[in-house]
Design a protein around this nucleic acid. Structure first.
Lengths: 229, 229, 229, 229
DNA sequence: GATGAATGAGTATTCATTCAT
DNA sequence: TATGAATGAATACTCATTCAT
């Protein structure tokens, strides 16, 4: 391997080091209250060094999101590309993928949704803005594909798969934000896991073909006992 | 008619004047890039005057949200208190109410969700924090009541109504944020109206009693023709 | 009495009302932390009204000092003009006068010394500056006269009476300030009374003619038992 | 000679640079009219830099005083520790020390007395407040020791040495303030030198044992010819 | 005269970013 | 490359003062 390559690898290691530190600090203090000084300290580097790896604070922040979008797309690609799998299983895999992304890094995920809905987005460099936009619509496209295969496979009623993807995405992002809010307002910690599970089931029931003749379909209409009626 | 009352009214008018200006500026520039100077200018007042009506920038920002939460709760109360209405109609009314809230003031609604998921929440005065928390959980409670009446009325399967309310709230907030994001990323403007409609239908189908014996229930399982396949 | 005169009297009453309030607020918060709003509230008037009676905050502050300087000079005049009194008694009366001034209004007295040694002095209107200067040097002159009479009366050694007056004045102001400082630093409250008494005795001993032939002079060389040796 | 040590020295140099500038600006404009911007300009630094060395304006101001208190204590320690010196000489040395402190830095000395008698004192960080308090009472203790040795040595009458120290301190601070006031009111500049000298002599005469049997003691009862009678 | 709402100039402080070493 | 001291632009907030009522 060339010396060039080794340098590149070293450089990437530093970037990750900074990203990890940034993630922690942003999560704890929020974008505005987190200072570059804080992040440098957490990364055990000097403030100046951060600027050797990231153009500015906004781009460092956005980089966090890039990472999780890439991970999401990778996971979705796996689901899509798995051969010889029936549509119903694919949707199960979609759910698992979304879970995984959340568990992979809940904090960065929150950052992603903050970013998407905020002023920061407007201040990015055109290139980074483009990256975000492409990755983001890439995710939607992938989810759309999965829904379409479900429709084509006769699993779902003929909804618009693009809209289904957007609804799923909204549901997901809304729950992540709502969970964060509950953590602040109510100190309630384990909201998302169970709720997302239930939401997914309801959503699948909602779009599923109502197949009166197929008792097997009842399989994933799991009963949800009302807990507090 | 007293002088006291007139003054109070005048004061309220000023508050509204400032809130309207703040809404515009915050929406255009985001919380951090909006300066009090900007808002004062927009309101055609001096910076100092803002502080006669709002303790600080955070509280001015939070006040925007208070307003829409109050409006939401009022609308939900109407739905709840309507007498002699069958459960199915109530849920329809819930949908309409949520629509209305969105249309009442989309921008402030976005502020609300920003606020709920952000650092700002931690910096509010205890009183305002309390107000937000109470109004927010008040909304959830009201939606919960509506779902419970649907369950009691035999309209829905026996899901936990609290969780249903949270899922609906997540879906709603997620869609509002996603819409904003799309507006920035894709210049797509009219996402929410149709999507929320469809999401609501799917959600209702998902939680609905699967009444094989009742062909009439198909009535509101409107078909959603795929638009872009 | 004319209506003119009544008005004048009314006006003076208001001025006093404001001065009393200002004194309290300045003493509690210090010059800079005391706001005109605070003073207005204390005086149960509106901020605007203060400006009908005092040109600005500096002048209001300075007015406090005027009052006590006038009182001091009045008391000193009494001492000077008392006829047929022997020099030794006069000096006793001087001590009593200084005591009285302190007791008349310790807080305003502190204000006076703050004022004399501060930036405020430079910002006064020329008229007020003149008033302060005249009253202040008037006090010095009066004290000088008393010392001179003591010298002429053969009571004291032939020190420069001007300098004696300045030393006395310095001693007095230094003790008042030191007392305030102790109140803040040590919560020590009753410093001045006893200490001034002792200082005065030492001072008189220091300037007194050493009359070896006159045992009567021992009268006011009171023994000061060491308290903590 | 370590790099650590060199940096520390450099840092101290900067602090001094700022202190010198602050001293000039505070003296010229007073605490409130002096802006951090002014001080930065005088120090040929940027405003931000000041905050790398001093937490805030109050602490910068207070730091000026620390320095002179430390110097005073050091000088007093010298006087105390000088071996084999007779009490009378010690008191002479005390006078010299006080002179020196005044000449070392009249402006900072004024700041010290402003500080001690002002609102600023209440806003300091607890640590700095403690430092001031300790140094200040340290000075008093040292002066007390000197008076006690004078009493023990039979030089003075048995006054309470604590109170003597306080009187001396009051006299000194009062004269410094009075001098400043005169500079503003009368443009009179060289008050303190001669007056303090005379005050000291009077004070010593006042507390000295009246030794009728010892004509030699007249030695330092220098005659003070009246200058302006 | 009295009011008190409105003003807007004034400033301490922060922190992203740079650059000499 | 890495540093971290220095920068200085940017801004929330205060409060003495004014003036229409």
């Amino acid at each position: 391997m060339g010396i060039q390559e080794r340098k590149e690898r070293e450089r990437e290691r530093r970037r990750q080091q900074i990203i990890v530190a940034a993630k922690r600090v942003f999560s704890e203090k929020g974008f505005n209250r987190a200072t570059m000084e804080d992040i440098a300290q957490e990364a055990e580097l000097s403030p100046g060094t951060l600027y050797l790896y990231f153009k500015n604070k906004d781009e460092l922040y956005a980089s966090l999101s890039l990472r999780i979008l890439q991970y999401l797309n990778m996971r979705l690609d796996h689901v899509i590309k798995e051969e010889g799998i029936e549509p119903a299983k694919r949707i199960e895999a979609l759910k698992a993928a979304i879970y995984d992304v959340y568990q992979f890094d809940p904090l960065i995920l929150i950052n992603l949704f903050h970013l998407q809905s905020s002023e920061t987005l407007k201040n990015l460099s055109p290139e980074l803005f483009d990256d975000i936009q492409k990755l983001s619509s890439g995710s939607l496209d992938r989810i759309t594909i999965l829904f379409r295969s479900g429709i084509d496979g006769g699993l779902f009623d003929s909804f618009d798969p693009v809209v289904l993807a957007e609804i799923l995405w909204s549901l997901f992002s809304g729950m992540v934000l709502w969970e964060e809010s509950k953590r602040i307002l109510d100190d309630d910690n384990n909201f998302l896991k169970d709720t997302l599970d239930m939401a997914f089931e309801i959503f699948l029931r909602g779009i599923g073909k109502v197949r009166e003749e197929d008792p097997g379909s009842k399989g994933h209409r799991i009963g949800h006992p009302a807990s507090s009626i």
